[in-house]
């Protein structure tokens, strides 16, 4: 999520060295990094390994032509998102139509006017950056900057599958800020927002880089802990629990916030599905609330665990 703005990388796929030289020179002040490929094959490889911001693709190349290359680029999930501007020596409308149908973002005829090419390159990079940002935004919670529920729903399934396929352990914690409505009523909604943001800050500081923190609902959060055994997961939750309870709120000196945690886990040979896994964590969270809040409860340690939906998970 913390992507840095880097210099855009432009991959030129063209069999003519004269074109490479000319573009390298004409675009040298555009703040672009250049990658050069002289055949379709080479272009595909570089696109995969370097993930350029934009590809300029010549249509007329021997062996693997531009259409074939474009088709291969748009057929591969690793390269499908990279915008492509097609360069072509022909001006036939049917070629342009075909290029767009195959997924090109733009089409420029050779010999090209360098000013036109320049603005088209910049526009393609801008559009694709905005598209990526929109895609990312749709999965990020605006208030806390954590992943949102939509992302969680998708991610829980893929992480669980990956863990079961790779026979590794995985844990899930659901956490809920204690008496959050009281807090809002007493200190006002801005204080409530500050606590939500403060909790997110604690998560960002205390979780490991591969943990996935999501805002699950109003004052509820979900943490996916891949490749983590129960004791590690418990200590992560404990650490977060202590940090949030100790946190000082500069604008609200009398405020103190705590959270409750429900934890579930499957071992390397455990089997469960996402909804059963979430239900188990939710059951544990409920137990933590019933037990007096500000604590971590583990599903498999609850007396009623045997009847729970995640029974399968306990078989291991």
């Amino acid at each position: 999520m913390q992507q840095q703005e880097q210099q855009p990388v432009l991959l030129l796929i063209d069999d003519s060295p004269s074109i490479h030289r000319l573009l390298g020179f004409k675009l040298k002040n555009e703040g672009l990094d250049f990658l050069a490929a002289f055949s379709g094959d080479e272009g595909l490889e570089l696109a995969k390994s370097n993930q350029p911001s934009l590809i300029l693709l010549d249509l007329n190349m021997p062996i693997m032509d531009g259409f074939e290359t474009l088709h291969a680029l748009k057929d591969d999930p690793e390269t499908i998102e990279i915008p492509v501007i097609v360069l072509s020596g022909t001006t036939k409308p049917e070629e342009k139509v075909k290029a767009f149908e195959l997924g090109a973002m733009d089409f420029v005829c050779k010999p090209f006017d360098i000013h036109e090419l320049r603005v088209r390159i910049n526009s393609a990079i801008r559009i694709s950056r905005l598209m990526r940002m929109l895609e990312l935004r749709a999965q990020i919670d605006g208030l806390t900057g954590l992943w949102n529920r939509a992302h969680f729903n998708e991610r829980m399934g893929t992480e669980l599958e990956a863990a079961q396929r790779g026979e590794s352990e995985i844990a899930l914690a659901l956490c809920d800020l204690d008496k959050f409505k009281n807090l809002n009523d007493t200190f006002g909604h801005p204080a409530g927002d500050a606590v939500l943001q403060g909790f997110a800050a604690v998560l960002n500081a205390e979780l490991r880089s591969y943990d996935i923190a999501c805002r699950y609902g109003g004052e509820e959060f979900a943490i996916i802990l891949p490749d983590t055994n129960l004791e590690q997961a418990r200590s992560v939750c404990e650490r977060v629990r202590v940090k949030i309870s100790e946190r000082v709120w500069p604008n609200y000196p009398k405020l103190s916030a705590t959270a409750s945690f429900g934890l579930t886990h499957i071992g390397a040979d455990g089997r469960t599905d996402a909804s059963a896994f979430v239900d188990a964590a939710d059951t544990a969270l409920y137990a933590a609330k019933e037990g007096g809040r500000n604590q971590v409860k583990v599903y498999s340690e609850l007396p009623e665990a045997g009847d729970g939906p995640a029974k399968l998970a306990l078989a291991s």
Partner: peptide, 20 residues
């Protein structure tokens, strides 16, 4: 055809539009 095509694409960029 291919060499001619390459010359067509590049020449104008180097200021030789008659060649292109």
């Amino acid at each position: 055809e291919h060499i001619a095509h390459q010359l067509k694409g590049a020449s104008a960029g180097y200021g030789f539009s008659v060649v292109g």
